[in-house]
Computed example of a mutant assay.
Amino acid sequence: MALLTFQGASAKEACFLFINGEKEGQEFAIDQLIRPIISTHIHPIKPVPAEGITSRQEELECLFEVSLVYSEKTLNMSLDTKRTESKISGFASSGNSFPDNIRETILTILFHNFSASSKKLICSQNADLFLEECPQFLKTLLIHQYNPDKDFSESSSQAVTVLAEELQTLIQEHQGLEFIGMAGSFQEDQILDQGPLLLKKYEANLAMVFHLEGDIIPSKSSMWKALASINVTLNAFKEKEGSFIKLGSFDIKPERIPVRTFQKKKSFREKHYGRAARKLIKKWSETELNQYLE
């Protein structure tokens, strides 16, 4: 939530920045979060002398004044300016933890005063905050999670390819998502450990991890010798404070197809897992998938 008011004034020289209400031990970090945003995108900021400023300077020079008030779970920030070219007065609150709460509140207050190019850059660099003012096009990275079953993982590459291509298409067609790329195949512990680094490497802010399970079992039917089945689980992750955080899961209803023979060869399993995957994507509910992707 943010309230903003703007009034004309006249001053183009560098301004002083004062921040009040910081928690002990966070003073420097908070200054280093707020100062670059204002100086880069709004107005030049100059350092306050060690001895402070005189009352005359306070009356004549332009100032940015930021006040922080903490409640049990919320940070409330207010900002006011004096003798700046455009008067800025705003308030915003955040329930995020430090330092995201500082980033969110200062960006929310100042957003409508940013230039078009600054808005684009701010939204790109702070996509993890999901700022209301930014278009929410999540940069989505697709990752395949290995099945620990060696027999299945060694004979399911065709199924993985089929499903990866279809999931890529769904992501590309979804209005709120931007497909960044396919990172490859990883074991579950590797994904949890390396997930944040993969998101950073690909400049993505959402990971869509898909996991396959399948089996080919003999059938007692007089017409079919076996049944091949495959099912898929989707898990969405984001990075937060260096950890890979799961946002939600979606299990796609398993698909089963009849097979006229039953063999244990890798090529046989590869072929029929691929068939099952192609049938699965024809029958899965795109409506349910799109609702999950929301």
Rank of each mutant, 00 (worst) to 15 (best):
N126L: 08
S221A: 05
I180Y: 03
F91A: 04
E255K: 09
I257L: 05
I191H: 08
E58W: 11
E27H: 07
Y70W: 15
D100M: 07
S118L: 03
Q145H: 02
E51R: 06
S249T: 12
G21Y: 04
L293D: 06
S115P: 02
A29Q: 05
S71D: 01
I19V: 15
K266V: 14
C123Q: 05
L131A: 09
S222Q: 02
Y292A: 07
I245Q: 12
K240A: 09
Y70K: 10
N290M: 13
N101C: 06
H43F: 13
L227I: 08
Q187L: 08
V69Q: 14
R278D: 01
S156T: 09
A92L: 05
K283D: 13
F28M: 09
C15Y: 02
D251T: 00
L167N: 01
F262I: 13
T5N: 15
K283V: 10
Y70L: 06
L138K: 15
L4G: 00
I257Y: 02
F152E: 08
E255F: 04
V162W: 02
E22I: 04
L167H: 03
P196T: 04
I245G: 05
H144N: 08
Q175A: 13
A116D: 07
G181F: 02
C15R: 06
K282N: 14
Q26E: 13
K271E: 12
N101E: 07
I143F: 03
S157K: 07
E65N: 09
Q263E: 14
F16R: 09
K73P: 00
F137V: 04
K266N: 09
Q57I: 04
I257R: 04
S86Y: 05
N96A: 07
G8K: 15
L33R: 13
A236L: 12
I19Y: 07
L289C: 11
H144Y: 14
S94T: 05
A207L: 05
S117N: 09
K220F: 05
E270P: 05
L79H: 03
T108M: 08
H174P: 09
A276Q: 11
F237W: 07
G8D: 04
Y146G: 00
S155M: 03
K150T: 10
T40H: 13
A50F: 10
N235E: 12
S117M: 12
P47V: 10
Q291S: 11
I252N: 01
T40L: 11
G195A: 03
K150R: 14
F179H: 04
N205T: 10
E241L: 12
E27S: 08
E65F: 12
I106T: 00
S155I: 06
L198S: 03
P44F: 11
F137Y: 11
V69F: 15
L33F: 14
R275C: 05
G242F: 02
I281E: 02
P44T: 00
M182F: 11
R35S: 14
K271G: 02
E188T: 12
R35T: 12
C134H: 13
V66S: 03
E255T: 08
K201D: 10
Y273T: 09
N205S: 11
L167G: 03
P254C: 06
C62F: 00
S115R: 08
V66G: 02
I252C: 06
F28H: 03
